[in-house]
Design a binder for these strands. Sequence first.
DNA 1: GTGAAAGCGCTAACAA
DNA 2: TTGTTAGCGCTTTCAC
Lengths: 334, 334
Amino acid sequence: MARPTLEAVAERAGVSRATASRVVNGGGSVREALRERVNRAVQELGYVPNRAARSLVTRRHDAVAVVVAESEDRVFSDPFFAQQLRGISAELTAADVQVVLLMARSGDFSKIARYLAGGYVDGAVVFSLHQGDALPSIAQDLGLPTVYGGRPDWAEGDEVLYVDSDNRGGARSAVEHLVAAGRRRIATITGPLDQTAAVDRLRGYQDALPDADPALIAEGDFTPEGGRQAMAELLARRPGLDAVFAASDLMASGALRVLRERGLRVPEDIALVGFDDVDTVAPWTDPPLTTVHQDIEGMGRLMARLLLRSLGEDGGNAVAPVITPTRLVVRNSA
Amino acid sequence: MARPTLEAVAERAGVSRATASRVVNGGGSVREALRERVNRAVQELGYVPNRAARSLVTRRHDAVAVVVAESEDRVFSDPFFAQQLRGISAELTAADVQVVLLMARSGDFSKIARYLAGGYVDGAVVFSLHQGDALPSIAQDLGLPTVYGGRPDWAEGDEVLYVDSDNRGGARSAVEHLVAAGRRRIATITGPLDQTAAVDRLRGYQDALPDADPALIAEGDFTPEGGRQAMAELLARRPGLDAVFAASDLMASGALRVLRERGLRVPEDIALVGFDDVDTVAPWTDPPLTTVHQDIEGMGRLMARLLLRSLGEDGGNAVAPVITPTRLVVRNSA
DNA sequence: GTGAAAGCGCTAACAA
DNA sequence: TTGTTAGCGCTTTCAC
């Protein structure tokens, strides 16, 4: 019943514990014959290294925390996170690194802080940070290697490692598309403006429309419900608007609901462009959503790879923030 | 930079390591004065126990695996899982037990098996099992205390611990509601019939409608898309049907889409009842969904509690499977 | 190339 | 009530 130890393997293979350890860890200098004997013993005994014992001596854990600064509900209901998480976890598990998923909004960071301080993980991937979130300073104080998803607002130099997409450029191209289609009163539903992605997308909108009527700007929160409310508000303020750029597909889907309830046709009466190109949403709305594509899963993979690299021997020389491109995908809503 | 050890705490407090350990672990007999000195030292040094060292000796990990036998995509996009996971994780983190979330469909179980065998966790909560899934036998071979969400198909005696809801009774009450409302051609969209929950709900339908036309039964897969397809098929087979019992809210939402596309009014032309009462779906469809309520989050909590108890000293005497009740919630769709 | 031995930080007998 | 001590299972110098 008791799990076999390295000692048992060594004994069975007729070698010392040290040699057995070398074989198990793929270490260098062991004669081929011995290596085989040890491997056979491992097989026969069904040996699996005791990770606690190992990390007690190596001080490594082969585990990283993936921290989402949103409530559990949000994380599990927003497909954007799902897609990003998929990318991260694919890359990490491929490298045989455990993933510990932590999530919390505001007050609950203490639990996460405690966990990170506990030293169970070698590094962290943190995303969906909001202005003022204490997480980064916690990680920094701990000296925990960290990669951020989305540019942190305090990211000045290239001290800090992050993966972001070209939010501003993407937003601008979306709005320019609307302008080119002859739309004149183009509103925008922004994300929560305490997030850089939301701010950057708003800037992109403003780049294309420097003199836009401020009443055409409504703040959402990246959720369908937020999109719904913002759309209703925009309609109340400027009934004559003829296009909307929503800073996320989910908000666009909420806006779409309002539009349909009001009997407004998309794109005939009002053109709608989203952002993200979330694979479970954008192609499936009615009508399918014209949106700004970003490689969400790829960004997740990238974050994971950056972290892995900065965990490496060299302490992660030659790793720097990455900005991934975006591109407009034209479907039927605009 | 190096994290303080218990040794350091002990020295600073002027006590032995053993005493320091007792204080840290809330152990019994330590004089109040010493206890305070130690706690102060812990504070000042910012001491956090090294979990690897601790579990090396205690052979406990204060961690459990939560295994969902579905693809990552499904897990992160199905609000049913979100709600269940919320319950589980609430209960577990309250007990200061780490949660390791593992998910995979079919082929990928090997990775999970390897993880469970690695002995990083004290137990497992497993749900959304399909017929023939190897997970249970893996857990059993490992002697890993396990609680299942949903009755496993091989659960005969009360050897196996699970939490399930009264699927059959709930389904029957849903269909009886339709019958009482005067519906005559009542179809059903089942879940994947390799899951007991799906089979039980189909049985409930048949309980209420022993002589139902087999063409009124279509198999879905608990996703909106599956519901869509099944609905389309039913309509093709029996254009005259006047009611549908969908075995999940998500499938009902898919069915609703088809109905709307065809210009069929709900409930006037076709009445629709769902199952689950998922909080982010059922109240928000158009029209709001009449559905069979089950306390999803509560079931999650229950699973966690059962596991925790069976992990306890007593080896979990007096723990037994639990069947939670369901009840019909009448909204507007039927 | 291989083995002996020294710990990693902690808990749990056992003594005192 | 407190301290001493013996490991938990593993990696990693350091000799050989």
